[in-house]
Nucleic acid binder design. Structure first.
Lengths: 213, 213
DNA sequence: GTCTATAGCGGGATAGAC
DNA sequence: GTCTATCCCGCTATAGAC
């Protein structure tokens, strides 16, 4: 067998959570440690003991804050989905009403969320499958709501002739996928600032729907 | 605690491996079972016993074919990278010499690889981090070679004025990310045939680099 | 090559003192 | 809330018969 080395799943980024929504005190520290570990080695690859060590408490103490390892993941996944949904709706509310501006705003917000909280995005997207359906349901609703935001903007742009794209559904999927991958490589070890990436990606999205900006 | 239900990480697709490169006999059956299980619940979430059960052999028998659970993953990850690299180089060899045709060919091949073998692509991309560096190295070399294929086509297209894209590196990353996500949703439960997706994505890529096709 | 059996360890979770 | 101590189980991997 091997020693403990493991390649990273994401760039070396500090484990940060959105302000305001993060619980205070030990509960918050557990959440942040779990974010780092789940991102590095996955939910199943992270033991309760390692998580407790990272927090600096005994493993038994974890159970005073969360009833199980899975509940910690559930809270992370929910925070991640809420953060994304909030940012997308805010972006739409603040931008002009035409489909091109709305698409650009959605893509910018989508990319910025993944660049600002890459670990949270990675865990939210690739570890949510470890949750039982009951724990997962609220996050899936938010996910569907996000999908619909993009879908509606796309449909509107096609309907009023702003966009020229043969298959709007596929275009929305492609754009969303392109954005999500940002969480896999964005970090301080690469030269692009977050808003530069967001601007470029917004432009890519506009081009995909047939607008040469 | 909970019973054994787990949401899927990918669409419900049969666990298929590229022909020719798959070992025959029990070794091949182990590989296919591991592909299905690693895709469903991840490397750390899959036990040797469950893997053996799926194959229909005793867990001890696995060790007559692979020295460890990790070696099974290593072979899958290597097969995945080899398949992708082969398809990309073949695509380039068969297409015309201009950058637009080359970009379209690369994207088509990239998408088709992820749509033809979604489980392999998912495992190759999201479980490779469970491998120790020595096991991972050959796959990382292939990965870098693939990245360079795309990079060179992009550079050529920009150099000869075919492409009009402000940041070619970011465009290549965005296109690659868009393609890779196909593995997460493609399957028999959705209406798009693989080559339709590939054609659309190729067109999206051309639009990203400023060509309205 | 395949099995039964088991070693040896680390996992998640709990009891109960402080 | 946090600790020490521990239960019990499932894990990877090995030994040895056939």
């Amino acid at each position: 067998m091997d020693e403990g080395w493991q390649p990273r799943r994401v760039a070396a980024v500090a484990a940060e959570l959105p302000e305001g929504v993060t619980p205070a005190g030990t509960r918050g520290r557990i959440l942040k440690a779990a974010l780092a570990l789940y991102a590095e080695t996955g939910f199943h690859g992270t033991s309760i003991r390692r998580l407790a060590d990272r927090v600096g408490i005994n493993s038994a103490t974890l159970y005073s804050h969360y009833p199980s390892k899975e509940h910690v993941l559930a809270e992370l996944v929910l925070i991640g989905h809420r953060e994304l949904h909030t940012r997308l709706t805010d972006a739409l509310r603040r931008c002009e009403a035409d489909p091109a501006a709305q698409l650009a705003a959605l893509v910018r917000a989508h990319v910025l969320a993944h660049a600002r909280y890459p670990l949270l995005a990675a865990v939210t997207n690739s570890e949510l499958h470890a949750l039982a359906p009951a724990q997962l349901a609220p996050s899936l609703e938010l996910r569907e709501a996000c999908r619909r935001l993009m879908h509606d903007v796309m449909a509107q742009g096609v309907a009023d002739g702003t966009f020229s794209v043969p298959d709007p559904t596929l275009a929305a999927i492609a754009i969303g996928g392109m954005d999500m991958q940002v969480a896999q490589w964005f970090g301080p070890d690469q030269p692009y600032p977050a808003d530069v990436v967001a601007d470029h990606y917004a432009r890519f999205a506009l081009r995909i729907v047939g607008l040469d900006s």
